[in-house]
């Protein structure tokens, strides 16, 4: 038997040739340190319109940091980030001033956090949580706000007879639906999901995943999904990036990563879960 090392690098892939669209998300060379800790090192992220990109890795792998960088919540130490959106075409979003960056974030990016406390005002009404997104953009007609909140909650399959209940009295699954409705209120081009179903009961988790799947299919939204749960990734993602110690160790089509992982770490990860 021949000695083999670093197997992954043997196979070279061509650049995309059939897909005409340019990537919606293009982040190059993202690096971020917290003091002595290198959270993310040289990560590239590319997501095409309508595609669901999964990012997997164990806690501390840097996957949530990547999501925060893509959500413009944090600035990287180095790297560039462009969105294929007319208003900021070709511009590095990290170079925009605070106001312009905030506008790009509000209008084009929606986010759902694992912890609903990060994304919701727990004591305000659920509909108000959703309406706030429109208020930020200057909508000042009450009837319009109500209708938008209702529409957005409905597509998140939230029961409308509870739309004015505050999230703190809702179940975990319902809270995630409110977050989702809020994230979708302004019809963003990019939806970021940070462990959206972690901590939910398995049956509730399946329902929330189903809603996400349905939405993705009907709205052809670009989604970047962070999860440590390979079941969630398998259900939703078209492609997957595997992260470890702040770096991408492997990426590929979801079924390929799960059934023919090339990297030693991915093989361990997949075998540990299946």
């Amino acid at each position: 038997m021949m000695a083999i090392s670093n197997h992954q690098s043997n196979h070279r892939f061509d650049a995309p040739r059939l897909v005409n669209a340019s990537p919606l998300v293009q982040a190059v060379g993202l690096s971020k340190r917290y003091g002595a800790i290198e959270a993310v090192t040289g990560v590239n992220v590319e997501a095409y319109p309508g595609e669901v990109l999964g990012i997997v890795g164990e806690s501390g792998s840097g996957k949530s940091t990547v999501l925060r960088l893509l959500n413009l919540e944090e600035m990287p130490d180095s790297g560039t980030y462009t969105l294929d959106i007319p208003s900021v075409l070709g511009e590095d979003l990290y170079q925009l001033d605070r106001f312009a960056r905030r506008e790009v974030q509000i209008l084009n990016i929606g986010v759902v956090y694992q912890n609903p406390h990060l994304g919701l005002r727990m004591r305000f009404t659920s509909s108000g949580n959703v309406a706030e997104r429109l208020l930020i953009t200057g909508e000042r007609t009450f009837a319009t706000l109500r209708q938008a909140a209702r529409d957005s909650l409905a597509i998140s399959e939230f029961p409308l007879n509870r739309m004015d209940d505050p999230p703190r009295v809702l179940s975990g699954g319902m809270q995630q639906r409110v977050q989702l409705a809020k994230a979708l209120a302004l019809k963003p081009a990019l939806l970021l999901l940070d462990e959206p179903t972690t901590g939910l009961d398995v049956s509730v988790q399946a329902l929330v995943l189903d809603t996400l799947k349905r939405l993705q299919r009907e709205r052809r939204m670009t989604i970047i999904l962070v999860s440590h749960d390979l079941g969630v990734i398998r259900t939703l993602a078209d492609r997957v990036m595997v992260m470890r110690h702040g770096r991408v160790v492997e990426q590929g089509l979801t079924d390929q990563i799960l059934e023919d992982p090339q990297d030693a770490y991915t093989q361990q990860l997949v075998h540990a879960k299946l």
Binding site: D14, R17, V19, L253
Partner: peptide, 17 residues
């Protein structure tokens, strides 16, 4: 849209196919 090598095509092209 043209000939493509399934063994080496980019992931997004395979997804499209």
């Amino acid at each position: 849209q043209g000939n493509i090598d399934l063994a080496h095509a980019a992931d997004v092209d395979i997804a499209l196919l």
